[in-house]
Design a protein around this nucleic acid. Structure first.
Length: 137
DNA sequence: GCCAACGTTGGC
DNA sequence: GCCAACGTTGGC
């Protein structure tokens, strides 16, 4: 199983909305970047991803799971980009903030820091376990 | 095919 | 609100 991190501005799609959307899963729409698209395509059902609030909060707030593998983005008229469906798994008891990640040597290689504008990124198994521990998940 | 101009993302 | 990073567009 692979691990990922997805970003969303809570003003447009927040963790709370993801939780309320329930166990069926909801499409992760709006990706318009080819690197991010390539990552979406690599995702397999059952893969897990951190849900990160960009701009407001700037912290990892929860864990989602791939409920459905990639298919064309219904909001993309050009039919170039894809979505996957995510469902909420569990919140982090303690959100892990960007400040915390930057200050932590173990997490200094995270794509979140190195490729700060990429909205769908891979996370290594070590980073995954460590962030889960920090967050109390 | 190069590169300047422009738009967007996202941290500060 | 500013601006750095970076992707995209369009003229040549």
């Amino acid at each position: 199983m692979a691990y990922w991190l997805v970003k969303s501005e809570p003003d447009s799609w927040s963790w709370d909305q993801q939780v309320k959307a329930g166990a069926k899963g909801t499409p992760w729409t709006g990706v318009r970047n080819h690197t991010a698209k390539a990552n979406l395509i690599k995702m397999k059902k059952g893969d897990r991803a951190f849900f990160y609030h960009s701009n407001v909060g700037k912290e990892i707030v929860g864990i989602v799971e791939v409920a459905k593998e990639h298919y064309p983005d219904p909001t993309d008229k050009t039919e170039t980009f894809v979505v996957v469906d995510f469902k909420a798994v569990e919140p982090l008891k303690t959100p892990v903030t960007l400040v915390q990640i930057k200050a932590d040597k173990k997490l200094s290689e995270m794509a979140l820091i190195k490729y700060s504008r990429l909205s769908v990124q891979p996370v290594t198994a070590d980073e995954w376990k460590y962030v889960c521990k920090l967050g109390g998940a």
